[in-house]
Simulated scan of single mutants.
Amino acid sequence: MGKVVVTGRIPEAALETLRAEHEVDAWAGSESIGREELLARVAGADAVVSLLTERVDGELLDAAGPQLKVVSNVAVGYDNIDVPACTERGVTATNTPGVLTEATADIAFGLILMATRRLGEGERLIRSGQAWKWGMFFLLGSGLQGKTLGIVGMGGIGQATARRARAFGMDVVYQSRSEIAPGVAAELGARRVELDELLAVSDVVSVHCPYGPATHHLIGAEQLAAMKGTAYLVNTARGPIVDEAALAAALRDGVIAGAGLDVFEKEPQVHPELLDLENVALVPHLGSATVETRTAMAVLAAENSLAVLRDEQPPTPIG
């Protein structure tokens, strides 16, 4: 029986899956585990089930020891994991793609609606107790029918967001490292373009690409200036893909009409200028936050760990 260290609270179904075959040391604190505590706990672990709040680097891998076989991230993104360091030490790294696609696309489209229809502003007005009265020009937003959605990163979540856009009568363009399958492109009516064209023609730009050195501040002041003045930006991928300071300035100065953010550069911190703006909807990294999705993510991470410890191919290895 091996030792599995879980770095944060995960659904009980995943813990039961792990306990059926191995000893489990799971952090149960309401706050994220401290770094020193984490390094101490992973010592002697055969598997580590990690949350995106924990940095898995050479220091942690060495603290675990040479018997460590697998790191299973409970997330589709894995910018918190030093994958080359894992490879160098013979440790398999896995993530949880697929199971959070629909939930994250729901949040992306929810933010599109919040931003374009000014729903956050409306709710804040009601809760503030201010007097209000219906009028023809009261809190006017922007409709989506006949507008263009530009998707940056056309993986599973991008495609799921495009399907929702089509249901709302939107046209779709996308920028991605590779073309999607012809049948999918036909279903979505999606046209592949370069980022410059996408920014210029889109009424809403939704970010779904992975985060890494090549996409750090992919959307900055120059890209925001290239968007329509009536356009909106939504980010449900990773915070540092968007330059928050540049976005705050663009929203303040009317360079673009509005934005919706589920992720932030330095979570849980939010750029203070964004907090003072009415034309941005802000939610605290809720992309996969449904009971069903978070359970499926954790169980998949557990299954990845168990497979490697059985010397089997894990369902969803990174790379």
Rank of each mutant, 00 (worst) to 15 (best):
A214I: 07
E54F: 13
M297L: 07
A85W: 12
R89T: 00
V99D: 11
Y78W: 15
N304G: 04
A200G: 10
A13C: 02
E121K: 10
T148Y: 14
G169Q: 01
N95F: 00
S128N: 07
V74E: 09
G150S: 10
L68A: 10
P317D: 02
G58V: 03
A85Q: 06
L60F: 09
A246S: 15
L286K: 04
L111Q: 04
H217E: 15
I10R: 08
G77R: 11
M170T: 02
T236I: 11
T17G: 00
N80Y: 05
V24Y: 08
D62M: 01
A301L: 01
G229V: 07
G44V: 03
I157T: 12
D196R: 12
G150L: 13
L251N: 08
D46M: 10
I180G: 13
V255N: 02
V207Q: 11
L60P: 02
P284W: 14
A302Y: 02
M170R: 02
A20P: 13
I180W: 07
P11V: 08
V83F: 07
A40Q: 06
E292M: 08
H271C: 05
R89L: 03
V270C: 00
Y232I: 03
V201T: 14
A13Y: 06
V4Y: 06
G110H: 03
L233P: 05
L199Y: 09
G146N: 04
V42Y: 07
A181H: 13
A246P: 05
V204G: 15
T94R: 00
V172F: 02
L39E: 01
S128Y: 10
